[in-house]
Design a protein around this nucleic acid. Structure first.
Length: 595
DNA sequence: GATTCACGAGTACC
DNA sequence: ACCGGTACTCGTGAATC
């Protein structure tokens, strides 16, 4: 069955030209096929948007040559999950398309690295409202990503059984094409969002990188490496020696000071401006030498670094930092690429793949200098009558005593920093302690777990179980409810009875609200089949599942059972396990001594 | 047999 | 064409008393 082109062309909605020199090499595509099995799935329809022709083209699989021809005419294939789905299916023996040497631009992979199971650009990309994508995405489906980026999506799914047929009525064809068009259009808009969002990144990389869209697709570390090699005019080389790649020195990490008090008022949150980058270029850590600076008897470093002149890459890092500072002050959005490059250099300096910046001591010495810096700062503050109640890596929470002002503290910090810098070979004036925030009230629970109100009355909450994605839905719901009360009262503590009553009300309304969201992978990717996640994956498949902890129903769990919301209809409130819920709410419960 | 411990897994903070 | 470590929570199964 051949479907005439004429029938399926759509006009572009606008004529806007994207600011990318190679946009005409881009072909956005999506397939409809009859199964999810990569090796045997048969493609039934393929849809395209070609920037070269500025056209949507929707084709039935019988147009095999036309489809392959269109692909051959473009260098870059854009899709959503096309790296692991559309692409492999197109190339499988059943369909036999040739996608060799194509640049695979997967809008999903840009956000999240599926193979390494770690976030990529979703932690950098903000939506039009200024919210970080990683924090607002409920899942990583096409429509969810689109919604998060304020791209309009129409609801309504197609019946996938349609793609198992080989003959369709006109109405069905129309339905299929509308569906296909929508998905391609959404994919295109997501792609364009990326192109626009990362436009400034092009300033920092060579043409080849731009040509391959690597500045968008790659990990941020890889991007940073491209940047420094390009600016230093040294070859972009990667370590290929298997033995050297295995070399993973213990790089240490940041120092976290345990909370010294449970609660405090009038607290200044100071943090070092770009701590690690500053340490790298002030100590020339990217330029090891046989003799030179080795901590000056102050910093416990292992390596030795050139102290006669600033190294080439160290200098570039400093230049990028200064340029970013300027752009940031001018509120120029192009500052982002500089920021990412700056913050990633320390990270890649500890990874042997990045040959030009790696050596065995740099990253470890950077963290060691960081620990010394923050601990010395704390000691000096304490010696001058300030109480440091908490700190993490590059920050100190300082309780301001009566009679002392923030300016007093900042003045002291200047002299402390001068002392620290006296032991560095290439000190710079931008190495300062900034006021990150000022808390009227702050509650410190554990390391990396605190909450408070800043001087503008804004509620700040970090790390607590209740704000994590796997918190019980009821805890999240209650938190949303009591949040305005907290802000109004400027207090986070409530009576246990009050909370218990709220829990009771909500559970009576909807018992399944106690469930938590579990994000699980493919069962065979787990080391231990007994783990809860693996049990969930085996029972319900990979993906996100809401499960209800209880004492009687469910094929998942051992000491505690987990059932689906559907299975939960027979449960009574007494059957539920509420310990996790109470633990999540615990920071907000008045304890006897709080009374 | 109850308690402790190490571990895998997920998520957040810097 | 893989940036890093720290720290919490939860559940499981083995180790320990």
């Amino acid at each position: 069955m051949i479907i005439n082109d004429r029938f399926v062309k759509f006009k572009t909605d606008n004529e806007r030209v994207l600011s990318h020199p190679y946009i005409n090499d881009v072909l956005v595509y999506d397939i409809e096929c009859d199964s999810f099995d990569l090796d045997t799935s048969r493609v039934k329809f393929v849809g395209f948007y070609s920037y070269k022709y500025e056209k949507y083209i929707l084709l039935h699989i019988d147009n095999h040559e036309r489809i392959q021809g269109l692909i051959n005419e473009h260098r870059i294939l854009v899709g959503f999950n096309n790296k692991f789905f559309d692409g492999p299916i197109m190339e499988n023996p059943v369909n036999g398309f040739d996608l060799k040497y194509k640049i695979v631009f997967d809008c999903l992979s840009v956000l999240y690295d599926m193979e390494r199971r770690r976030p990529n650009r979703e932690v950098i990309i903000k939506n039009p409202d200024g919210k970080m994508l990683a924090s607002i995405l409920k899942n990583r489906k096409l429509n969810s990503v689109a919604e998060a980026l304020n791209i309009p999506v129409s609801k309504g799914d197609i019946d996938y059984k349609l793609f198992q047929k080989d003959e369709w009525s006109d109405a069905e064809i129309q339905e299929i094409f509308i569906y296909l068009y929508k998905d391609i259009n959404i994919t295109r808009q997501i792609f364009e969002y990326y192109i626009t969002y990362f436009d400034g990144f092009r300033d920092l990389v060579p043409d080849d990188n731009i040509k391959r869209l690597n500045y968008i697709r790659s990990s941020t570390g890889s991007f940073a490496y491209s940047v420094v090699c390009h600016l230093a005019d040294i070859p972009l080389v990667f370590e290929d020696d298997k033995e050297k790649l295995k070399l993973k020195p213990d790089n240490g990490g940041g120092y976290v000071l345990a909370p010294q008090v449970e609660y405090a008022e009038n607290v200044v949150y100071l943090d070092f401006a770009s701590l690690y980058p500053h340490l790298v270029f002030q100590c020339n850590l990217l330029t090891p030498a046989d003799e030179g600076w080795s901590g000056d008897g102050f910093f416990p470093v292992k390596g030795t670094y050139d102290k006669t002149s600033q190294g080439k890459i160290d200098k570039i890092l400093k230049d990028i930092y200064m340029k970013r500072r300027e752009l940031k002050r001018a509120k120029d959005p192009r500052e982002l690429g500089y920021k990412i490059a700056i913050n990633s250099i320390y990270g890649i300096s500890g990874s042997p793949v990045f040959k030009n910046v790696f050596n065995t001591t740099t990253a470890g010495d950077c963290t060691a200098i960081g620990r010394k810096t923050i601990q010395f700062t704390r000691d000096q503050f304490e010696a001058h009558g300030y109480k440091v109640i908490y700190g993490d890596t590059d920050s100190v929470f300082v309780q301001l005593p009566n009679g002392k002002t923030v300016q007093n503290l900042l003045d002291l910090s200047k002299s402390v920093i001068a002392t620290i810098q006296a032991h560095m070979p290439f000190p710079v004036s931008t190495f300062v302690l900034d006021v990150d925030d000022e808390f009227d009230k702050v509650w410190l629970f554990k390391k990396k777990h605190y909450a408070g109100f800043n001087k503008d009355g804004k509620f700040i909450i970090k790390g607590l179980s209740i704000i994590k994605g796997d918190a019980s839905q009821l805890a999240q719901l209650l938190f949303d409810k009591i949040r305005p009360l907290m802000i109004e009262k400027k207090d986070i503590k409530f009576d246990r009875e009050y909370i218990a009553n709220l829990i009771d009300i909500e559970l009576k309304k909807n018992i399944t609200i106690i469930g938590s969201l579990y994000n699980v992978r493919n069962p065979d990717s787990y080391k231990s089949a007994s783990s809860l996640q693996c049990q969930i994956a085996t029972e319900h498949g990979a993906g996100s599942h809401v499960l209800i902890p209880n004492k009687i129903i469910g094929d998942v769990g051992k000491s505690k059972k987990y059932c689906t919301p559907e299975e939960a209809v027979d449960l009574k409130i007494e059957d539920l396990c509420l310990d996790k819920l109470w633990h999540e709410l615990d920071p907000f419960i008045k304890r006897p001594k709080d009374l």
